[in-house]
């Protein structure tokens, strides 16, 4: 399948890096509360949002992901005291850099979602899915393979 054509029945595929202590728990809570959202996201569990190396994000785009969300505890609530503050600095820069090389801002996002914010998790992933669905498949940074 050529990546330059819009495939039929295309559905966006979105990778969510979720910290174990807040966002992963928030997603669990969304499940427990039966809060529905589009089945387009795939959660990758990491101990802390500070574990997410920018290289992972670029690699996902290379391999054809349509959008990436990095999510962790709110500032001040990090299970590891300060990990998310570094995440914030790193991804503030990274977001601007990605835009600078032509990646649309909707395709890479970062959010704070706590373990009690099931509804916020639902709302954020729904919104991102819809934004990316409207934009179509990502072709930028993609590996030709």
């Amino acid at each position: 399948m050529s990546i330059t054509e819009m495939p039929q029945n295309w559905e966006p595929k979105i990778l969510v890096f979720a910290c174990n202590w807040c966002t992963y728990a928030g997603a669990d809570l969304a499940g427990l509360s039966r809060l529905q959202y589009p089945p387009n996201i795939r959660i990758l569990r990491v101990p802390c949002s500070g574990r997410v190396n920018p290289q992972f994000v670029i690699r996902a785009f290379q391999r054809g992901i349509d959008g990436v969300l990095v999510a962790g505890c709110h500032p001040g609530d990090c299970h590891y005291v300060s990990g998310n503050y570094f995440t914030r600095r790193r991804y503030l820069l990274m977001q601007r850099l990605l835009q600078y090389v032509g990646i649309d801002p909707e395709r890479f996002q970062a959010r704070w979602i706590s373990g009690s914010e099931g509804p916020k998790f639902q709302q954020v992933v729904t919104q991102i899915t819809e934004e990316i669905r409207a934009m179509g498949p990502n072709r930028k940074l993609r590996d030709a393979q």
Binding site: P54, Q55, I58, R90, L93, L97, V101, L141, D143, A144
Partner: peptide, 18 residues
């Protein structure tokens, strides 16, 4: 990745920039 293609080259460039 070590391949010399557009995608890997940009991966290299962005990684080095960070």
């Amino acid at each position: 990745g070590k391949a010399n293609n557009s995608s890997e080259n940009q991966f290299f460039a962005l990684t080095r920039a960070m």
